[in-house]
Design a binder for these strands. Sequence first.
DNA 1: CCGTCTGGGTACTGTCCAGTGTAGTACCGA
DNA 2: TCGGTACTACACTGGACAGTACCCAGACGG
Lengths: 237, 237
Amino acid sequence: MDPVEPQDDELLVRVPLRTPGRGTAAPDRDRTEDPRVLRSRAAIVEAATGLFLERGYVDTSVDDIAARAAVSKRTVYNNFTDKERLFTDIVLGVTATAERFAAELAAALADVDDVSGALHDLAREHLASVTRPQVVRLRRLISAESGRFPDLAREYHRRAPERVIVALAGALAGLGGRGLLRVPDPRRAAEHLAFLVVGATLDRVMFEGEAAVPPAAELEALARDGVEVFLSAYTPA
Amino acid sequence: MDPVEPQDDELLVRVPLRTPGRGTAAPDRDRTEDPRVLRSRAAIVEAATGLFLERGYVDTSVDDIAARAAVSKRTVYNNFTDKERLFTDIVLGVTATAERFAAELAAALADVDDVSGALHDLAREHLASVTRPQVVRLRRLISAESGRFPDLAREYHRRAPERVIVALAGALAGLGGRGLLRVPDPRRAAEHLAFLVVGATLDRVMFEGEAAVPPAAELEALARDGVEVFLSAYTPA
DNA sequence: CCGTCTGGGTACTGTCCAGTGTAGTACCGA
DNA sequence: TCGGTACTACACTGGACAGTACCCAGACGG
């Protein structure tokens, strides 16, 4: 499988390769990283990502992470200054996925002619992306810890859901400029489209967990109905 | 102030008066409650509600609660079997507010003639209610703890946001029956209306906290634009 | 005035956990 | 062969915190 296309049960995690927190003294030594370090770090990140998403931040101990990564606790602390840094590094790494998705969204709508068809495709894709189990867990995790990590939550929101809205607004403005839609306020239009399609599902899933994700047929209907309402309001007279 | 109308900075809390967890042996003794007990219990509930909403479940210790309630820890445990029970009792007590609100919503839309005006009023009220700081904190608190208390989260969602949707669906169906709206699927229509109006704000607030609540003028615009889109899709031809 | 009963206060126990210190081991390049 | 570096195992510290044992005070009946 293509390592750049995330599957339902995984998230791409990009963690900075330089060990943070010891840049004070290191004179940029050997740039061929020790394979032992790479191996340990990858195992730790993978284990921690899974555990954080399954149990949350507080209910995951560093001992748990070390155990699942088959690594000693000391090694965890050799690679990450503390539990908080490990957490934030992972979360910010994960948002890379969302950023890429936002860019694709905008591009897909750039120069279409069949507005209705394109919006239906976009809605389906958006809904599918947002209801992927790991994405659901990530949303819940971050909002759950937004009290402990307010900056992180803001950053995630800015980079992921917000960026999707902004990209969508740009695309809709483009369609408006070509006379294919009537878009007085692109930002508002993007929000309307997005939440017509994913709003109700997102809300339910936030409280009931990924088990509450509707079946595929219902997702299809949600996308269709949402776009239909959007078009009846935003189609030029 | 009327004790049944919640203000911005408070939530009505209804907690069962019988001490839970000792019903096994008590043969329904004196029903004139000891005033000391009533006083303690009220202080504990108030303190715990505030602390849970401010800091969350894990970051609030029973010692903190006892201190703010100006009561000993022992007294807390005399009135509530454990921290979990205290938490769930409080959360379920708070949902009483939301339940009442849902009923009012449905009633307000029952037999209006000016559909547009009524929907605008409803949208304004819904948005105002959902962005009240304490409501925002409650949403975040419950979804944050939905991993630890899945049943509680489900119950809250069923009683509060879900009940609003159901009531709204009923009201819209009524308007549809009178030919004032075209409502093929009342449930879907209710979701569309609700999330057109509150979706984007709800999402932002979930990550950025109650500080991200838009100013009154923007709330007004959100309600107006959302209803406008809804009407252009659901007005009979 | 006395015994008893109940709620409340203080001090404690047991546990969990983040983070550290240390001593030893495997591997790698010179 | 030697020195350096990362990893392991393990014990340990310090602190937080849920829940409890035990005693005191005051109300109430006799």
